[in-house]
């Protein structure tokens, strides 16, 4: 289970989205639920924008409402069907089927929340709509940070993540492939290139922090920034680089 999903369990139920998970291309496989299921990132800023701020037309909402209602009845039937099957199983297999019943309950819980959110209007952000078009990854990183800030600001969610992994197109910074240079093998040329990528990523983080400060939510937000490896060349995960920011830590400690 990953940190964001653990946090979402505590603070996620109050908002439209328990968590928002974004990333460039396929991200880094960072987010996992308690049950051990991978949560893939949203990789298109336009999709995220629509989800956060664009209300569906009424007729679409009506169709969704009907679907939700039917789904509730189907879940009831599935639970009863599973229980009938359960009676024919041994203990080990019953435990296995229990996972299915837990999943049914899980979906039911979400369903109960859904109709309410379906008809409650989404907040209107003070930015232009983000259109569906092809973008540089460099711009996507900036847009995702902006959208995360807006999502937190409008209380659409209280947990947000961004993953930049091997799919990040470093050619946009006039560099060789990210994966290629990460196996730097101590050559200076590659290490210099890595510095360019890392400078870019930390600059964007810094912009994000400024945004949260402007919105006056920085002190109420905890930011964790880091990498799953300290040195990708030796695949070492010792002495991981981690930045912890926000949360009013300093005042609380002193």
């Amino acid at each position: 289970m990953s940190l964001d999903q653990a946090a979402a369990e505590h603070v996620g139920s109050a908002t439209r989205f328990p968590s928002i998970n974004t990333g460039i291309v396929n991200g880094t496989d960072m987010c996992w639920t308690r049950a051990g299921v991978h949560v893939p990132p949203v990789n298109n800023p336009a999709t995220l924008f629509r989800g956060l701020f664009v209300n569906s037309p009424v007729e679409v909402r009506r169709i969704q409402e009907t679907r939700l209602k039917h789904r509730g009845s189907v879940l009831d039937a599935l639970r009863d069907s599973a229980r009938a099957l359960n009676r024919t199983l041994n203990t080990a297999d019953r435990n296995k089927l229990e996972q299915y019943l837990t999943s049914v309950r899980d979906v039911e819980r979400r369903l109960q929340m859904s109709p309410e959110w379906l008809n409650r209007p989404k907040p209107t952000p003070e930015v232009d709509e983000i259109k569906d078009e092809e973008r540089m990854h460099l711009d996507e990183v900036a847009l995702f940070y902006d959208l995360m800030a807006l999502a937190l600001q409008t209380d659409s969610t209280r947990v947000a993540t961004l993953e930049t992994g091997m799919g990040f197109r470093t050619s946009e910074l006039n560099l060789d492939s990210y994966h290629g240079i990460s196996h730097h093998g101590k050559t200076e040329g590659r290490i210099d290139q890595l510095k360019v990528v890392e400078t870019f990523l930390t600059t964007k983080l810094s912009d994000f922090i400024s945004k949260l400060k402007d919105a006056q939510i920085f002190d109420n937000t905890l930011i964790v920034f880091g990498s799953g490896m300290s040195d990708a060349s030796s695949h070492s995960n010792r002495d991981l680089p981690v930045i912890l920011a926000g949360g009013g830590w300093i005042t609380r400690d002193t």
Binding site: T33, A35, G36, V37, V39, R71, V74, Q99, Y100, T102, S103, V104, R105, D106, V107, R109, R110
Partner: peptide, 12 residues
Amino acid sequence: LVTSGILLQHYF
């Protein structure tokens, strides 16, 4: 093999 709410929604 894990069965989860997320997966069940995909099954639907």
